[in-house]
């Protein structure tokens, strides 16, 4: 019987600091992705810290709210931000553990993301424009099919690494890596699926284009089109945080290089090296995602289920491999 209150105050503070660090680097990761994308397209691109300036600027601006909207539209940014930051508290990032994991596992993180989606779509419908509905109807289809792919990937991860508790997943990934297993066969399939899901969940090409406002292609941007000022800052910030959470899950599940194992023990040096290696891996994976994005074109909406079917099939293979390889 583990009571979260039994976790010492010191550990709780460490956990909060880790989360603050994670949400602190979230706009930076967005900046890096934009920069990489610009460079691969032979543009110079904005500085990697531009997203911070954007957020600061938006916070100081007045906002315009649609006269058709209700309190749903006005409270949605708050719910998005609160849910994503709460989810960030459960995710091990710089350290291979989060002290709050007894209270919330990966299913809770997914549940909180679903809450974000629920209010994003409602906010899109609430303003009574065609754009909002358009975004919501596309997002509905994509998110409904992402769900089984995501769950099956978690199924593989939880089978291979023991449970849905993120700390135990991260530490057993680190232990396995330390003991010489680079990647389990079942996890190879999971990594393919998770990469696809990451693209879908963060609204990147080929699912969605975060840099467009064309009604033919936009999904997420269409739903939040009416936001401005402080609310827009909150929406964008929560989107960045969601992205960085998915990146840390990816890094902790599949790339446990340089991660602290329980055998090494918690010291200033080992903590610093783990944190730095996490930062390096997160930047590298985000650069990889941005690079992959410039290599493909946006897919037609009704081809997207095919890609997600690949993710489902891949993680199903992972399940089968797990059971047969054991």
């Amino acid at each position: 019987m583990v009571e979260p209150t039994a976790v010492s105050l010191q550990l709780q503070i460490i956990g909060v600091v880790q989360t603050l660090g994670l949400i602190g680097i979230a706009p930076l990761i967005t900046g890096i992705m934009r920069k990489v994308k610009a460079r691969t397209q032979k543009r110079i691109g904005a500085s990697i810290i531009q997203p911070y300036y954007d957020l600061a600027k938006l916070l100081k601006k007045d906002e315009v709210v649609s006269d058709q909207s209700s309190w749903i539209f006005r409270s949605a940014p708050w719910i998005m931000l609160i849910s994503t930051i709460t989810a960030a508290l459960f995710v091990p990032s710089f350290l291979p553990f989060s002290p709050f994991n007894a209270a919330g596992d990966i299913l809770v993180v997914i549940g909180l993301f679903a809450l974000v989606r629920f209010f994003t779509m409602l906010a899109g419908i609430d303003v009574a424009s065609a754009f909002g509905g358009l975004g919501a109807s596309r997002e509905m289809m994509i998110s409904a099919i992402v769900e089984p792919a995501l769950f099956l990937t978690i199924f593989v991860v939880s089978l291979s690494l023991g449970g849905t508790n993120l700390t135990s997943i991260a530490s057993s990934a680190a232990n396995q890596f330390a003991s010489g297993v680079i990647i389990m066969p079942s996890m190879i399939f999971a990594v393919i699926a998770f990469f696809v899901i990451m693209l879908a969940e963060t609204g990147r090409i080929p699912f969605d284009n975060p840099a467009t406002h064309l009604e033919l292609t936009m999904v997420h941007e269409a739903m939040v089109l009416e936001y401005s000022g402080k609310s827009l800052a909150m929406v964008q910030f929560s989107q960045s945080i969601k992205q960085v959470i998915l990146l840390s899950l990816f890094v902790n599940f599949f790339v446990p290089v340089g991660m602290l194992t329980p055998a090494i023990g918690l010291s200033a040096a080992s903590t610093a090296s783990t944190a730095l290696s996490f930062l390096a891996k997160a930047m590298l994976v985000s650069a990889l995602v941005a690079f992959a994005e410039t290599r493909v074109a946006k897919w037609r909406l009704f081809r997207i289920p095919d890609l997600l079917a690949v993710a489902i099939a891949s993680s199903m293979m992972g399940v089968v491999f797990f059971y047969f390889w054991r």
Partner: peptide, 22 residues
């Protein structure tokens, strides 16, 4: 899992269309 994803879509649609917008 697919059911859960679709249930979310279903209730966004029911609530959104019935209670929101014009």
């Amino acid at each position: 899992a697919l059911t859960m994803g679709l249930a979310l879509a279903t209730f966004i649609r029911i609530f959104g269309i019935t209670f929101l917008a014009r």
